[in-house]
Simulated scan of single mutants.
Amino acid sequence: MTTAAPEPRLSATVLLLRDAPDLQVLMVKRHYQIDFAAGALVFPGGKTNDEDESDVWDELSDGDYTGKERTARVAAIREAFEESGLILARPKSARGKDQPLVGADVATHVSPHRAAVDRREKSFVELVRENDLVLALDTLVHFGHWITPDMMPKRFDTHFYLAPTPPQQLATHDGRETTDAVWLSPKLALEMEAAGQATIIFPTKMNLGKLGEEESVPTAINRFAGERVVTVLPIVGKDEDGNPCLHIPAEAGYVQTIEPLENVANVAKR
């Protein structure tokens, strides 16, 4: 009897960017006891929850988004806050597209609630409301969409976003899901993986490669804001030599379309 593949869970990931002076992206190291991508360098992100779906975000966010698109963007900002302490938000009194994001003072003030929000002991909605903030959903640029292959025991329907890091805010790991937070150029991150100095899973590598085609935050934001995102659902097949591999669509614009299965780490515990 064939077991049906599990439905993928809606998830969101954000590539927080800065120029220092060259383009860097924030990566966090997953805790070794986490059941997905344990010990890997990843971008802040995770599964959506029921509060992310709440219609209250209509009044507590900037950007004209609805349904799953709004849910994923809310989750991306919430996860970035939980895992890095960075919060993509504006004062409610000074909201609107292109208005400045809050600085280090607000981020420091709300930071003590990170763990409670993560554990669902504190409502993210209420934290935003109590501090007279609105989430800056409009600052997120849709960058990628990956769905876990159906042979995996845990599957995710993950949207990747780019976002400039708010000036003066400082990133720190949470000590629970992540054990480190580092700023890396895409090239350096890929060199570390190739040298065996870091574990980076396939979708993360592909998105690092695409991001690394740009040299600054403005050029990356301008380019990818205007590009169509093609959904990637890797398919198991064989290469021209008959070796097992994953195939991804060429139109997605990544640097490669085939990855040997032997290179794909089993990051999900069964």
Rank of each mutant, 00 (worst) to 15 (best):
L23Q: 02
G209S: 14
A104L: 11
V134M: 12
S216A: 14
A181L: 00
P91D: 11
A5C: 00
C245F: 05
E83T: 15
A189M: 02
K238Y: 11
L16N: 10
A195K: 14
D64P: 06
L101G: 15
M151N: 08
E213F: 01
K29L: 12
P112D: 10
K205I: 04
M1N: 02
I258L: 13
A171Y: 13
T158F: 01
K269Q: 14
V255C: 08
N207E: 15
T108H: 15
I200D: 02
D98M: 13
K205R: 13
H31F: 04
L233F: 05
F143E: 11
H173K: 06
K122A: 13
F156S: 02
V42W: 01
V232K: 08
V102F: 14
A268W: 07
V102L: 10
E227W: 06
M27E: 01
A4S: 06
Q197Y: 10
V217R: 07
G253K: 03
T108Y: 11
G242N: 10
N243I: 00
V134D: 08
T71E: 09
S123N: 09
Q99E: 15
M206N: 08
P244L: 04
K210R: 15
R114G: 08
V128A: 15
E259S: 05
Q168P: 09
D241R: 03
P244G: 00
L184F: 06
D138L: 05
Q197C: 03
K269S: 13
H145L: 02
E126C: 08
E227D: 06
A5W: 01
V134P: 04
G96Y: 13
H31S: 15
G226C: 11
V14D: 00
T3R: 03
R120S: 04
D105Q: 03
Q169G: 12
N222V: 07
P234Y: 10
I87P: 07
R155M: 09
A5T: 04
